[in-house]
């Protein structure tokens, strides 16, 4: 997984929050890298640590309540141990973020234009007039009609899709090299989602930025991502190219995610194949493999699953899996048991 041309390099990232109930290990030893012009999809359920990771990359965790360790390097600049002012100057300019719900993520009291102008002027020493021209230009580029008029509107006067476009315009206003999109389309309708995904794809090609898309929706990942990282209980449990993850997944949790999802591109299955149980509490992460209480194949590990955390080991070229089962057995189970069930139609 370490790439020589990596633009973003995350090594053994740990983000822990001390609470009254105990230490919450939201992210616990995450390693990945990403090149310019490439898209990484981070998939996981609530509490998997995917959003905490994104805030960590932007250096947005408060030192007073979060313990961040490990290494995040953006084009050679370390973020974890850098002085806060250095990281602040990188935020918005070299790395930017798109949030899930653009209505709550934009300030209700300021016009959309004002919020873009503010983002632009904090990193560029230009007059308000120049910044406003830039804001109008950006709104036009993300496909907002009549941008010179809409620039003076407030966020609540925009429709959901237009708001997310404005949010993207704001994130891209300083031409960042790394863009992180945290559930960028979850709050949107499906036709609007298609528009936004399309826009993000086009803009990424235009700006040649590195893109991290964080989502629980495997469909969105399949649309955008080159590589996919599946997170569970604060750890990466499977990593590989999008095609590998969708066609030859080897972790039982990934199987479960695929089996939980009805698909329009296949015939109707009789039954969905969900994962039993509930996502783990991050305070009492299960011992050994965090997934073992929900794993249908736990018995095959000979008790190892309950005691030992499996290593994230290479299974094929660029394919990493954190599972105690031998590679051959995993491949066999996928091909002989799981895949046929997923593809069975009624």
């Amino acid at each position: 997984m370490p790439a020589p041309d990596a633009f973003l390099d995350v090594r053994d990232l740990r983000i822990h929050f001390p609470t009254d109930d105990g230490l919450v290990k939201s992210v616990d030893g995450l390693t990945f890298s990403l090149a310019r012009g490439k898209t990484l999809g981070i998939v996981g359920e609530s509490g998997s640590g995917k959003s905490v990771t994104s805030l960590g990359i932007l250096g947005l965790h408060n030192k007073r309540n979060a313990r961040v360790s490990g290494e995040i390097s953006l084009d050679g600049t370390d973020i974890v141990n850098a002085d806060p002012e250095t990281v602040r100057k990188m935020r918005g300019r070299r790395m930017a973020m798109i949030f899930q719900d653009p209505l709550s993520a934009m300030h209700p009291y300021y016009t959309v234009g004002h919020q873009i102008i503010e983002a632009y002027r904090v990193h560029n020493n230009v007059s308000k007039a120049v910044a406003k021209k830039h804001a109008i230009d950006m709104l036009g580029r993300v496909g907002i009609p009549q941008p010179n008029r809409r620039v003076d509107d407030y966020p609540h006067q925009f429709s959901g899709g237009m708001r997310q476009r404005a949010m993207i315009a704001m994130a891209l206003s300083c031409d960042p090299e790394l863009l992180i999109a945290d559930e960028p389309t979850t709050a949107l309708d499906v036709t609007v989602q298609a528009q936004i995904l399309d826009l993000m794809r086009d803009l990424q090609q235009e700006f040649n930025s590195a893109l991290i898309i964080i989502t629980h929706d495997l469909g969105v990942v399949a649309e955008l991502a080159d590589d996919v990282l599946v997170m569970y209980g604060g750890k990466c449990i499977e990593y590989g190219s999008a095609v590998t993850i969708f066609e030859e997944p080897e972790h039982p949790y990934t199987w479960g995610l695929l089996g939980s999802m009805p698909r329009l591109d296949r015939g109707v299955t009789n039954r969905l194949l969900p994962i039993s149980g509930n996502p783990p509490s991050l305070i009492n992460v299960p011992s050994g493999c965090a997934f073992h209480p929900r794993c249908a194949y736990e018995a095959r590990t000979g008790g190892l699953g309950t005691t030992t955390v499996p290593e994230l080991a290479e299974s094929g070229r660029g394919h990493l899996v954190r599972c105690h089962m031998p590679v051959a057995e995993r491949k066999r189970i996928w091909n002989e048991q799981v895949r046929p069930k997923l593809e069975a139609t009624s």
């Binding site: 499906v190 036709t191 989602q193 298609a194 995904l197 399949a222 649309e223 969708f246 698909r263 329009l264």
Partner: peptide
């Protein structure tokens, strides 16, 4: 418009997609 969880069909999907404009 529904994203299809099949990265191999990505291009085909995009070509066939009817993108509605406006709100």
């Amino acid at each position: 418009a529904v994203p299809v969880p099949n990265p191999r069909r990505r291009e085909a999907n995009q070509r066939q997609r009817v993108l509605l404009t406006g709100d």
